[in-house]
C-alpha cells in the first residue's frame, strides 16, 4: 500500500535539499516515515526529534540566528501545540517552513484525530502562515516548492499540508 505513495516523499525531500534545508525538526508521524528516512540518510540534513512540536519553532529560530535553514515536520495534531510559539516566528519575522501530514480528513478511523485535523489549516492561517495543501501525491512537490520559495526567498512563514489521501488512511488493522 505504502509503495504507491513513495513519490511525494521523494519530491518533498528534493525540494528541501534544493533549498539548502539542513536541519529537520520533527515529531514523528506514520505518514512521514519515508520522508524522514530520506533525510536521515542524508548527512547534511540532521534530524532533531522533539518532545512537542512547538519546540521546533524555537529550534529553527535559533538555527536561523546561527545561519542555518531548517524545516519542521509533524502531523496535524501537532499544529495546535505550536500556536503560541508561532508568535516568535511572526514577531521576529523568522523564516519558517513546516510540512504537516494530515489526519482527520476523509477516511479517518480515529475520531480523536478529527478536531485538530479539521482546523489545522485555519489555525496556521490565523497564525500568519501561508498554507499550501496537497490533495493528491503529484501536488506535494509543487506545493512544497511554493512554500519554500515563500519562506526562504521572501522571508515568510509557510506550511505544506499533505492530505490524508496522499499518505494513506491508517486502519488499525494492518499496521500501515
Amino acid at each position: 500500500m505504502r509503495e504507491t505513495h513513495i513519490d511525494w516523499s521523494v519530491d518533498v525531500f528534493r525540494v528541501l535539499r534544493g533549498f539548502d534545508v539542513r536541519m529537520i525538526a520533527h515529531v514523528p508521524d506514520a505518514g512521514l516515515i519515508r520522508l524522514l528516512d530520506l533525510c536521515r540518510n542524508d548527512a547534511d540534513m540532521p534530524l532533531v526529534p522533539l518532545t512537542t512540536e512547538e519546540e521546533g519553532i524555537a529550534l529553527l529560530a535559533g538555527a536561523w540566528l546561527g545561519g542555518r535553514r531548517g524545516a519542521l515536520l509533524m502531523q496535524s495534531s501537532g499544529v495546535g501545540n505550536c500556536i503560541n510559539m508561532l508568535s516568535l516566528a511572526k514577531t521576529c519575522a523568522f523564516p519558517l517552513l513546516m510540512v504537516v501530514t494530515m489526519r482527520g480528513e476523509s477516511g479517518e478511523t480515529n475520531p480523536w484525530q478529527v478536531p485538530m485535523g479539521h482546523i489545522a489549516g485555519d489555525v496556521l492561517r490565523l497564525s500568519g502562515m501561508r498554507v499550501e495543501h496537497a490533495a493528491i501525491a503529484g501536488e506535494a512537490g509543487p506545493a512544497a516548492a511554493a512554500a519554500a520559495d515563500h519562506v526562504f526567498h521572501r522571508g515568510g512563514r509557510a506550511a505544506v499540508l499533505i492530505g490524508q489521501q496522499v499518505i494513506g488512511v491508517k486502519t488499525f488493522e494492518d499496521g500501515s
Binding site: 536541519m23 524555537a58 535559533g62 536561523w64 540566528l65 546561527g66 542555518r68 516568535l88
Partner: peptide, 17 residues
Amino acid sequence: GAMGGSVMVGLGLALAQ
C-alpha cells in the same frame, strides 16, 4: 515572549554554530 522556548532557541543556535 515565546515562554518555554529559550533552551530550544539556544539549541538551534548551538547546532548551527
